[in-house]
């Protein structure tokens, strides 16, 4: 099986490298991309889509099909990490460690022993315990909402300024990872479970693909958002702008959830019991 995989990888690699020889030269002014595609985008993007940021218009509208599969690749990365690393119920730690907060005494409770109540003076700790740090926790608690608002701004304002779904999604995912680093993995999973992360990541891709499908059902080409004009109650040009926003949200959702999912799996080696 390994040898088959190796042969497949090598053959695909050779084919891809052989394919690059057919490409036009670097910065060739007569190549198809430079001769009519790029000038069209630069001149017509604002008239076609009412989006001032040409990058967003090209990424999410003209080349929306490409972007959809980029999102799918990110989702696949999350899935691959999950399938490779995740371990269910294997070698669970026998003892759970609790720390008495006022005195700092650490006790091990064997399997089947009586566990302390949820809001008592005991807190569950990892086997490699790092001391409670008030400064870091407080700062992260203050900073995280601001970062999240900024991330939402980056997603929503992707039409008019540099930004968009990928960037905003990464920032949004980073806030959750920051929370996990400043507190611990268990608290974070309690807030945003693995199930939520997986559902969000597939939902983002689905939102993208479903928007394209809706355009198809309304009698236009796949991912041609101008077909949505009747649904959104706007003219076709504005509908393309709104369509870009919808799929940017989908991309952001997917990227955020995959970031978190990858972090959960990588930081705890797939056990999800204790991590960084």
């Amino acid at each position: 099986m390994k040898k088959t995989g190796l042969i497949m990888v090598i053959v695909t690699g050779i084919l891809l490298i052989a394919g690059t020889t057919e490409f036009p030269d670097w910065a060739d002014p007569n190549s198809p991309a430079s001769s009519h595609v790029s000038p069209y985008y630069i001149l017509k993007a604002i008239d076609d889509t009412a989006v001032p940021n040409v990058v967003s218009a090209v990424l999410a509208d003209y080349r929306g099909y490409d972007t959809m599969f980029e999102t799918a690749v990110i989702f696949a990365a999350g899935l691959a990490c999950f399938f490779l690393l995740r371990q269910f119920n294997r070698k669970r730690a026998k003892t759970k460690m609790y720390r008495h907060v006022p005195t700092g005494i650490i006790i091990d409770i064997d399997e089947g022993g009586k566990l302390p109540e949820e809001n008592s003076n005991f807190e569950r700790i990892d086997s490699q315990w790092t001391p409670y740090d008030l400064i870091i926790k407080t700062t992260c608690r203050i900073i995280i909402p601001f970062i999240q608002v900024f991330a939402l701004y980056v997603i929503i304002h992707g039409h008019h300024s540099p930004g968009g779904g990928f960037q905003g999604g990464v920032i949004l995912g980073a806030t959750i990872i920051l929370f996990a680093i400043s507190h611990d993995l268990r608290t974070t999973i309690k807030r945003l479970s693995e199930k939520m992360a997986s559902v969000f990541s597939s939902m983002g891709v689905f939102l993208f693909a479903a928007t394209g499908m809706l355009c198809l059902l309304l009698g236009s080409v796949y991912l041609d958002y101008s077909a949505l004009s009747d649904l959104l109650g706007t003219d076709p040009v504005m509908a393309r702008s709104h369509g870009i926003l919808i799929i940017e949200i989908g991309v952001g959702l997917s990227v955020m959830a995959v970031m978190i999912w990858l972090y959960y799996n990588l930081s705890s080696a797939g056990k999800h019991n204790e991590g960084l």
Partner: peptide, 19 residues
């Protein structure tokens, strides 16, 4: 923002080194 985060980051790194 920098005034809040930068000293915290320095503190966190130094704390990690100390631990």
């Amino acid at each position: 923002l920098i005034f809040i985060t930068s000293p915290t980051a320095t503190h966190a790194i130094i704390d990690a080194g100390f631990i």
